[in-house]
Simulated assay, not measured.
Amino acid sequence: MLNEVADGVWVRQSGWVWSNTTVIRTGDGLIVVDPGIGGAELDELADDLDRLGAPVVAGFCTHPHWDHLLWHPRFGDVPRYATAACARMAGEVRERAQAMAAETATGVPLELIGLLTPLPADGGPVPGEVVEHDAHAVGHAAVLLADRGVLLAGDMLSDVLIPLLDPRRTGQEEAYEASLDRLAEAAEHVDVLIPGHGAVAKGPEIAARFATDRAYLEALRRGEEPDDERWGKRR
């Protein structure tokens, strides 16, 4: 079910790798961010959206990994936005994303995977500030809702997943650190942090998330195995 974590901001967590869908109410309707994961869960999410009593006017995808590229017909035939780099990459990996979804999730509408539109310069219907960076995935973006004290972090700052660096690109440790710096600046005045996977962080928990990820990266720089018990720890 949807849980309201701030004014007009709801989160629904999937049973698959603690994946979070975020729903944002705007003056025009609802924005659905990274819906997932299985077909039954997408149906339940559609029921939750119906109960909110407002139409879905757009989707937003934080980055082009298959579990963030999903959609359902009941959400509506509306634009699904992403950064230009994310939208381009989603088109390139669409067939692979469909194959991974078919293998991992049940009942997912494969034909709707990865159909993204580059976000217009003025942000279109997506509220707040989109913070694009280069960590974890091409065109990765966070969304800062400063007026509501909320930061949607995409696949960063999780309490259950380690920092997952993109092995196909060089300089990811530096890019991840730089991205943490940008997100930390965005998070200075927020009370709620929503990661792509794991528990929502509030208050002092937010700074702790940054500290944990920085400690992980510092261990990598020293050539050490990070002392980190989150899921996905390197073996």
Score class of each variant (00 low, 15 high):
24 I>G: 04
26 T>R: 07
29 G>C: 10
30 L>D: 09
31 I>K: 14
31 I>G: 09
35 P>H: 11
36 G>W: 02
36 G>I: 07
38 G>W: 10
40 A>T: 05
40 A>D: 14
41 E>G: 07
41 E>N: 03
44 E>W: 08
45 L>N: 11
45 L>S: 09
46 A>N: 05
46 A>E: 10
51 R>Y: 01
52 L>M: 03
52 L>F: 10
57 V>I: 15
58 A>V: 07
59 G>A: 03
59 G>D: 12
60 F>K: 01
61 C>M: 06
63 H>K: 10
64 P>D: 07
66 W>K: 14
67 D>M: 03
68 H>A: 13
76 G>Y: 03
77 D>A: 14
78 V>D: 13
80 R>E: 06
82 A>M: 00
82 A>Y: 00
82 A>I: 02
83 T>E: 12
86 C>P: 03
89 M>S: 03
90 A>R: 13
92 E>Q: 12
93 V>W: 13
94 R>F: 11
95 E>G: 10
96 R>W: 13
97 A>Q: 05
103 E>W: 10
104 T>M: 13
104 T>H: 08
104 T>E: 09
105 A>R: 11
108 V>P: 02
109 P>Y: 09
117 T>A: 09
117 T>N: 05
117 T>H: 10
119 L>K: 01
122 D>N: 14
125 P>C: 06
127 P>M: 02
132 E>K: 01
133 H>A: 04
134 D>T: 15
139 G>W: 08
139 G>F: 03
140 H>N: 15
142 A>V: 07
143 V>F: 00
151 L>F: 07
152 L>E: 15
153 A>C: 10
